[in-house]
């Protein structure tokens, strides 16, 4: 119950930290920009994991980069949400048969939401984030 109250406050102003090493990031930028404007919902990109409420991991991770992602997740103040962006974070995507690609992100980090697409459209990102808002509204 206490957590639900916290989450309700949290979704009113989500500060996003991006961790990316692939094309998924190119679809985050328009969401920040003037066309899709995520600041309407109180969401702004921040530069330090310490300020972030939401970690967006865009695209595939390698054996090497996943360690950085885990470190970023540990540095974030809780409660925090992790979103996997793009098909690569779900299945390895087009790099599925590579020797050092992480096939499924949730084996390494507690992922709350996957947004599929290669890369996902800005609308898909907004829809995914909306579904988190609805989830919080329904459970609180």
């Amino acid at each position: 119950m206490e957590d639900a109250k916290k989450l309700k406050r949290l979704v009113k102003s989500v500060w996003v930290f991006n961790w990316f090493n692939s094309c998924g990031f190119t679809e985050i930028l328009p969401v920040v920009g003037s066309r899709w404007d995520m600041e309407r919902f109180g969401m702004i990109p921040v530069a330090s994991p310490r300020h972030a409420d939401c970690l967006i991991i865009a695209g595939y991770q390698t054996e090497k980069s996943i360690r950085r992602a885990q470190r970023i997740y540990r540095q974030m103040p809780k409660p925090a949400v992790v979103i996997g962006l793009g098909s690569c974070s779900m299945s390895g995507g087009m790099y599925w048969d590579s020797y050092n690609t992480i096939k499924r992100l949730s084996d390494y980090i507690p992922v709350d939401l996957y947004i599929p697409g290669c890369p996902p459209r800005p609308e898909a990102i907004l829809k995914g984030i909306m579904s988190i808002f609805r989830e919080v509204e329904d459970h609180a």
């Binding site: 109250k5 406050r9 949290l10 009113k12 102003s13 003037s34 404007d37 600041e39 309407r40 310490r50």
Partner: peptide, 24 residues
Amino acid sequence: QGRVGPPLVQPLRDVRKLLVKENI
């Protein structure tokens, strides 16, 4: 910048949110 922008009370919401977050 040609955007809609946040609601007027957004800074207040930011502060309320920061108050429930973990203080590291």
